[in-house]
């Protein structure tokens, strides 16, 4: 039968043995990190972005690399998913983008700080994470029933990065604002143009934010929206 001395040897020996392996693996991990995390892409802006990330305790609501709190979205691939432009507009006034829904703190970041946060998130998005976050694998089965996209002409890139956060076309996009399928049969180009230029002037109190579009961006969007019959 096991004696107390043998039990102690098992404890001490096992602990030392596995600690040694753990330290060896740590050395190897640190050796591989420059390549896995693309150290050459870690600019001063990225590092400043991480400081902002920590100072504001973003992890207290969001997750990044799957770590943090579960109150706000996972941000590992945020730049891929939303694009820099969307994140910039969002961070200027987070609650304008999701009116009446779960609130993010209004941080009043400067434009430089927003640039740093985006640089940090962009760098995070390129880390080799062994496949996290995974692509949704059950999506095809669910999307089969949705409406096919009904548009002619190419979608403006701006629509795909900004507008889809709230509006859907062909069953894809956000649910905050109305779906835009067939919008051209309800609203004409002149109204759309005024609306996009200043939503509050057309309909005071609307949840639609003023996105500060340039004349060219607005014209391109309107030209495409009127094709959605």
């Amino acid at each position: 039968m096991l004696t107390k001395g043998q039990a102690r040897t098992f404890f001490v020996g096992g602990t030392l043995f596995f600690s040694a392996i753990f330290l060896a693996l740590t050395v190897d991990t640190l050796r591989q990190m420059p390549e896995r995390q693309n150290s050459e892409l870690m600019t001063a802006s990225v590092v400043r972005g991480k400081m902002i990330w920590e100072n504001e305790n973003c992890m207290g609501c969001h997750t990044i690399l799957g770590e943090g709190a579960y109150y706000a979205p996972e941000l590992t691939r945020a730049v891929d998913r939303r694009g820099e432009e969307w994140i910039r507009i969002f961070l200027r006034d987070p609650q304008a983008m999701y009116p009446g829904r779960r609130k993010m703190v209004q941080y009043d970041f400067s434009e430089e700080q927003i640039t740093d946060v985006i640089a940090f998130l962009g760098w995070i998005g390129q880390i080799d994470t062994n496949g996290f976050p995974p692509e949704p694998d059950m999506a095809p089965a669910v999307v089969v029933a949705s409406v096919p996209a009904a548009s002619t002409g190419p979608r403006p890139a701006y629509f795909d990065t900004i507008c889809v956060a709230c509006h859907s076309v062909g069953g894809k996009g956000g649910l905050v604002g109305p779906a835009l399928d067939g919008v051209a049969s309800r609203i004409d180009a002149e109204y759309l143009d005024r609306w996009l230029a200043n939503p509050q002037a057309v309909k005071p109190g609307t949840a639609m934010p003023n996105l500060g579009l340039t004349d060219d961006q607005r014209a391109e969007l309107v030209a495409w929206l009127v094709t959605l019959q």
Partner: peptide, 27 residues
């Protein structure tokens, strides 16, 4: 002693379950 022995036997390298998807190597 036996139980705390098992704790370290599994727990030290078990730290690896936090390293799957944060950028650490695949092993």
């Amino acid at each position: 002693y036996v139980i705390v022995g098992f704790t370290f036997l599994s727990g030290i390298l078990g730290t690896g379950h936090h390293y799957y998807y944060i950028g650490a190597p695949e092993y």
